[in-house]
């Protein structure tokens, strides 16, 4: 019935298919890197110091300690100043560091820190942090930093976070068309949603 379409589809498909098979062949979840712009923040927040491995002098703090909404909301959330101060008022050793002084300036002025958005998706995209964290961290039992890293890159080695992944639709799909185990023990797999309205609003 759609044979006239099939022909044209075949022709276009020939060009495109080469690319798609290349994507399919790459099974591990490490995906293409595409370094984003340097985002100028009010002051430097050292992600490596907080979330990095102990061997590299990091504190190995769980991403979700500060980005606490990731597991229960569509957005991961930027922590309020209160959260920073909650720990830092008890850490005397770095109290005089310039960054921490800056932090307490905002705290004393009762002002929110105007952090800039690093991973900014277009307005027509509906991305849900909760779904991804529930699936990969809570169902599959993947380490948090690995699961967050699929999209956010190796944040534990960055100071100021910088976009590392392309965050384009084809890139999202490259992961959505892989077979993911439904939980830690099961051999059953399923793919991410393949439905325009799941992500486009």
């Amino acid at each position: 019935m759609y044979s006239f379409l099939r022909l044209s589809v075949l022709l276009v498909g020939l060009v495109v298919s080469a690319g798609s098979y290349a994507v399919k062949a790459a099974q591990p979840l490490t995906t293409a890197d595409d370094l984003g712009p340097n985002v100028e923040q009010p002051f430097e927040f050292p992600h490596d110091r907080h979330a990095g491995d102990a061997a590299d002098g990091g504190m190995e703090i769980n991403c979700m300690y500060c980005h606490t909404y990731a597991r229960r909301s569509i957005v991961a959330g930027i922590p309020p100043v209160q959260k920073c101060v909650g720990c830092h008022q008890n850490i005397e050793s770095v109290r005089e560091a310039p960054r921490i002084k800056k932090l307490f300036e905002y705290w004393d002025a009762k002002k929110a820190i105007p952090w800039k958005k690093v991973h900014d998706l277009p307005d027509f995209v509906r991305f849900n942090h909760e779904r991804h964290i529930q699936r990969f961290v809570f169902a599959q039992g993947k380490p948090v930093q690995e699961a967050c890293g699929y999209c956010h890159g190796d944040v534990k080695k960055m100071t100021v976070a910088r976009r590392q992944k392309p965050l384009s639709m084809g890139w999202c799909r490259s992961c959505h068309m892989k077979d993911h185990r439904i939980d830690a023990t099961s051999t059953k797999t399923s793919q991410g949603p393949n439905d325009c309205w799941q992500c486009h609003k």
Binding site: V12, M169, M177
Partner: peptide, 15 residues
């Protein structure tokens, strides 16, 4: 849905 997927599974989407 990527364009590759659309083209590969055209008959499915037109189901």
């Amino acid at each position: 849905m990527s364009i590759t997927n659309l083209l590969e599974n055209w008959s499915d989407f037109r189901h």
